[in-house]
Structures are given as structure tokens and as C-alpha cells.
Amino acid sequence: MWITVESTVAASIDDVWRAYSSPEAITQWNAASDDWHTTAATVDLREGGRFSSRMEAKDGSMGFDFAGTYTKIVAPRLIEYAFGDRKAEVEFTETPERVNMRVTFDAETAHPIEQQRDGWQAILDNFARDAERS
């Protein structure tokens, strides 16, 4: 099952693309709630390139690596990637004053659909707020 989340960013498409693909920026926005953060990120933004984000609870109780391989890059419009046996795509659509973003991902079976949608939406909303400040 595929899940889609969307957000709008009041910035140029080049600024949005850079913020979405910069390891330094990712550590600023990549969290679904205030009690989590991304402590490290790597990006090799090319088809076949790898990415990784280390996500940890701020209290140190747990953490995990979100990692995968880029499968298609069409700068600054589209990023597709695989993570484990799942896939996702990020679409960037420019309008005169903003960028509409759509993230579509393959749901997993361990957590409820609503929880997955809410988590990915929260991360995308954090991204939009951070990108508009930059």
C-alpha cells in the first residue's frame, strides 16, 4: 500500500532542493516529534548513490538508521529511492511563489497506516518550516 503526504514551501525550488538534499540541513529538520532528532546524515545524491540518517530519541532510549539507495534523480524535480524492500518518491512542483512537495512511500506492516502517515507528514512539515527559515 502506498501512502502520500504533501506540504507547501514558500521558497525557490533551488533552495528547497538544496535543503532536502543537504546532510547539514537534514539534521535540522528530520524528526517526527520534538523528542527525536537526527544526529548524522550522509547524502550521495546520484542514481546508485546511498543515503543515511541516524535518528535517535533525545533521551537516548532508542535510535535507528534510515538508509537506502537513490534509484532516480531528476534535479530539481524528483528523487526516488529504495530503503530495504520498500520504495519512496519525492516530487517537487514549482509555482510562482512556492514549491509543492509530495512524498509517496510504500507502507510497512509493523505499524498502523495512520501512524506512518502522521510520522512522515510531521517530518515533511518540519522540513517546510525549516526550509522557509533558511
Results as ranks from 00 to 15, higher is better:
W2A: 12
I3A: 12
T4D: 02
T4N: 03
V5S: 08
V5Q: 07
S7D: 11
S7I: 03
T8Y: 04
V9I: 14
V9Q: 02
V9R: 05
A11F: 12
A11V: 06
S12Q: 08
I13W: 06
I13V: 13
D14H: 08
D14M: 07
D15I: 13
V16N: 01
V16T: 15
R18L: 07
A19I: 11
A19F: 12
A19D: 08
I26L: 13
T27Q: 09
N30F: 14
A31I: 01
D34Q: 06
D35Y: 10
D35F: 14
W36D: 00
T39A: 06
A40I: 09
A41S: 14
D44N: 09
L45A: 05
R46I: 05
E47Q: 04
E47L: 03
E47N: 01
E47C: 03
F51M: 06
S53E: 11
S53T: 11
R54D: 05
R54Q: 12
R54A: 07
M55S: 02
M55H: 01
M55L: 11
M55P: 04
K58A: 09
K58G: 08
D59A: 10
D59Q: 10
G60I: 14
G60C: 09
M62A: 15
G63M: 11
G63L: 09
G63P: 03
D65M: 11
D65T: 14
F66N: 04
T69W: 01
T69L: 00
Y70H: 15
Y70I: 14
Y70S: 11
Y70T: 13
T71S: 12
T71C: 03
K72N: 08
K72C: 00
V74L: 09
A75T: 15
P76S: 03
R77E: 13
L78F: 04
L78I: 09
E80Y: 03
E80D: 06
Y81F: 13
R86Y: 12
A88K: 02
A88S: 12
E89D: 13
F92P: 01
F92I: 02
T95W: 05
E97Y: 05
E97K: 10
N100L: 07
M101T: 02
M101D: 00
M101A: 04
R102E: 07
R102K: 15
V103S: 06
V103Y: 10
F105S: 02
A107I: 00
T109Y: 01
A110G: 08
E114Q: 09
Q116M: 07
D118K: 08
D118L: 11
G119S: 06
G119Q: 06
A122C: 05
A122V: 00
I123P: 00
I123E: 00
L124F: 10
L124C: 06
D125Y: 10
N126P: 01
A128K: 10
A128V: 05
A128W: 05
R129C: 01
R129T: 11
D130W: 12
D130C: 09
A131E: 00
S134N: 12
S134W: 13
